[in-house]
């Protein structure tokens, strides 16, 4: 539905986005992850035709997007970039009517329906300048839904919201996806992306660092699951693990001073038969196992690893 191929954007000598490639498929809730200034908003602006690619292209439904200077057939796509901007001196209803006029769609815009969807029905005659940040975010989603899109593009939709507002917006995104919308979600809130998205692209300094399903990206789906093992005595346990055919990798975790910590931690990766044989080996060898926990790396671990090691 949305293909980004070799997309590069330069501002003078500064390369904001460098040869970006990814694809959003129908039904995805696609997370677009990156730290501030990594090129997320630049990419979204290009999708909306607000800025022009320097190289490469972005295609929506097979047609080129990102062509400033004219209506480019943005049918089927809607959303917002950065903090949604509305005319504060107009009511929400007037804002939606104005945007519906800018859509040039045939038929009466379904304003009451979208207001009801986002929970703003009854407040539509209030001026937008009286709205809270959360209400503006919901109004932005309502304005996007007016276009009856197939792809909804949301740039940090929970930014500036309180926990209750975040929960509401996430629930709305989840519901819209269940109703059939493909969602492209830019965020630097890793828990949010992990919670909502099935596929992600991670970018840093304008470059694609990782792409795929969350499981693929964090490396927990490679058939060799990792575990955190806490034992009474690591040295003896390592000796046993190194001789075990069921273990592919084992090492003592970096010592971290933890108050009240009991035992020593080992990180190990086991074979396809799972951790059972390893446990038997350790117990047979006299090692006391205090804990054994799957150690699937989090998206946060991966994000920090990918984005912090680069200049």
């Amino acid at each position: 539905m949305l293909e980004v191929r070799g997309f590069t954007k330069k501002f003078g000598d500064f390369v904001a986005v460098d040869s970006l490639n990814f694809e959003v498929r129908q039904g995805d809730v696609y997370g677009f992850l990156g730290p501030n200034g990594s090129g997320k908003s630049t990419t979204i602006r290009t999708i909306f035709g607000l800025i022009e690619p320097t190289e490469g292209e972005i295609r929506l439904f097979g047609r080129p997007a990102g062509v400033p200077g004219g209506a480019w057939g943005r049918e089927g796509v809607a959303g917002f970039v950065d903090a949604p901007g509305f005319y504060g001196y107009l009511s929400a209803l007037d804002n939606l009517r104005l945007l519906a006029a800018a859509d040039r769609r045939k038929g009466k815009p379904q304003i009451p329906r979208v207001l009801e969807t986002v929970g703003l029905l009854g407040r539509e005659r209030d001026k937008v300048k009286t709205y809270s940040t959360g209400m503006k975010q919901r109004l932005a989603i309502a304005s996007a839904l007016l276009r009856e899109p197939e792809v909804l593009i949301l740039d940090e939709p929970t930014s500036g919201l309180d926990p209750g507002g975040m929960r509401d917006v996430r629930a709305l995104i989840h519901r819209l996806n269940e109703e059939g919308l493909t969602i492209f979600l830019s965020s630097h809130l890793l828990a949010e992306v992990e919670q909502l998205c099935n596929r992600v692209a991670v970018i840093g300094n304008g470059r694609l660092l990782a792409e795929g399903t969350i499981a693929e990206v964090v490396g927990g789906d490679n058939g060799h699951p990792g575990y955190r093992l806490v034992v009474n005595e690591a040295k003896g346990a390592i000796r046993i693990l190194e001789g075990s055919p069921h273990v592919t990798d084992a090492s003592v975790a970096d010592a971290v001073a933890r108050e009240g910590a009991v035992g020593e931690e080992i990180r190990l990766t086991v074979g396809p038969e799972g951790p059972g044989p390893v446990v038997r080996d350790l117990v047979g060898g006299g090692v006391e196992i205090l804990a054994l926990v799957p150690a699937r790396p989090s998206l946060e671990d991966l994000f920090l690893e990918l984005t912090e090691e680069r200049p």
Binding site: G69, R74, D82, A101
Partner: peptide, 16 residues
């Protein structure tokens, strides 16, 4: 006010 990007993200052309 950030409204230009909001309007230009719709179908209306820049010339119009």
């Amino acid at each position: 006010a950030g409204t230009l990007k909001t309007v230009l993200s719709r179908s209306v052309g820049r010339t119009e």
